[in-house]
Amino acid sequence: MLRIPCPWCGPRDEPEFRWGGEVPLVRPGPPQAVTESAWAEYLFMRDNPKGLVRERWLHTLGCRQWFIVVRNTATHEIQATSALGDPLPEIRP
């Protein structure tokens, strides 16, 4: 069970959170101009790298805020967190 430092509430256990996918994820547009493959790319394709990744988490049972976590998918080490609206945290290799 991870211990995730919420930028608002401090470190909390993982069951309090919801995982929200990698960022940045930009929705293609305008809708009329989007090709099927670009749409599929947006819907289904993720980098899913081994190593550090920026992702969104939602503190469901706490402050109910989305925020950004830099997490290592191989070791689960959490390198940084930041509130939405703040600049995206750097990934330090």
Partner: peptide, 20 residues
């Protein structure tokens, strides 16, 4: 076990090609 057991179901997405 946390992520290892449950959450990453939404994390594993890697596909070779387009929508077709």
């Amino acid at each position: 076990r946390g992520l290892e057991a449950s959450r990453l179901v939404r994390c594993a997405r890697r596909f070779p090609g387009g929508a077709r």
